[in-house]
Amino acid sequence: MALITFVRRRPWWLAGAAAILALAVAAVVLVAVRPGGQDTPGEGSADVGFARDMAIHHQQAVELSFIVRDRTDDEDVRRLAYDVINTQANQRGMLLGWLEAWDMPKSSQKPPMSWMDHGHGSMSMPMYEAHDGSLMPGMATNTQLDQLRKADGKAAEVLYLRLLTTHHKGGVEMSQAAADMAGDAKVRRLAEGMVQGQESEMKLMADMLAERGATP
């Protein structure tokens, strides 16, 4: 009987501890849902603009890499293409996931890169004019994509390396702007990682072009 009385009469501090624990769990969930644990970025923010534009930019790099895998047997080029496909497809999924978590549409009627500060390099001053399927700086045109689809062997390798180098240059400039302007810490970290990773790949591609007697 004494034991039953003890179980029914929980100490007052135990209920308080349970409440504190519940609040802590709720805070952890909130941080997990909102990248960086900050207020949700809104329409017009660098975070949202970067996520939308870089998702599109990455999609084309993945497409270029899938094309070249079928146009050459060179192991070095195919390995690079495989790395680009995996890295940029994963990053693209993260960017789209953030837009979903922020309850933001994945597309906009505004021109690409309208979120960028006009002090961030030539790509934003003047505003880039889309042409022949190239929506942003660095993106290949539809004509260039068709040329890659028709090329074989060394010609395909050189064209891919040149197109991807130009693509990375545009991506680096956009990522640097996001690293400087985004309000969410996780967005800034991802953007900084993109700058470092793509600059490293550009150096690798310069060496690969030189091995093939070509220039960027």
Rank of each mutant, 00 (worst) to 15 (best):
M1K: 02
A2S: 15
A2M: 13
T5W: 03
T5G: 07
R8D: 05
R9W: 08
W12S: 09
W12R: 13
A17T: 10
A18K: 06
A22K: 09
A22V: 13
A22N: 04
A24T: 14
A26T: 15
A32C: 10
A32H: 07
G37S: 12
G37D: 11
D39L: 15
D39V: 11
T40A: 14
T40P: 11
G44T: 02
G44A: 08
S45H: 09
D47F: 04
V48S: 06
G49Y: 02
F50D: 01
D53C: 10
H57E: 10
Q59Y: 01
V62L: 03
E63N: 12
S65D: 08
F66A: 11
R69M: 15
D70E: 15
R71S: 07
T72D: 12
T72N: 15
D76C: 02
D76Q: 14
V77D: 07
V77W: 04
R78H: 09
R78L: 07
R79Y: 04
A81T: 03
V84I: 15
V84W: 04
V84M: 13
I85F: 04
R92Y: 01
G93K: 05
G93I: 01
M94F: 05
E100H: 05
D103G: 14
S108I: 00
Q109P: 09
P112H: 07
H118R: 13
S122K: 13
S122D: 10
M125A: 13
Y128K: 11
A130T: 02
G133M: 06
S134W: 03
A140V: 06
A140G: 04
N142G: 13
L148Y: 03
D152F: 13
G153S: 12
A155S: 12
A155L: 05
Y160N: 04
L161Y: 02
R162K: 15
L163T: 00
L164D: 05
T166S: 15
H167A: 05
K169I: 11
G171N: 01
M174Q: 05
M181L: 15
M181Y: 06
R188M: 11
A191I: 09
E192L: 13
M194F: 02
G197E: 05
Q198V: 12
K203V: 08
K203P: 01
L204W: 00
D207C: 09
L209F: 04
L209R: 01
A214D: 12
P216M: 13
P216Q: 14
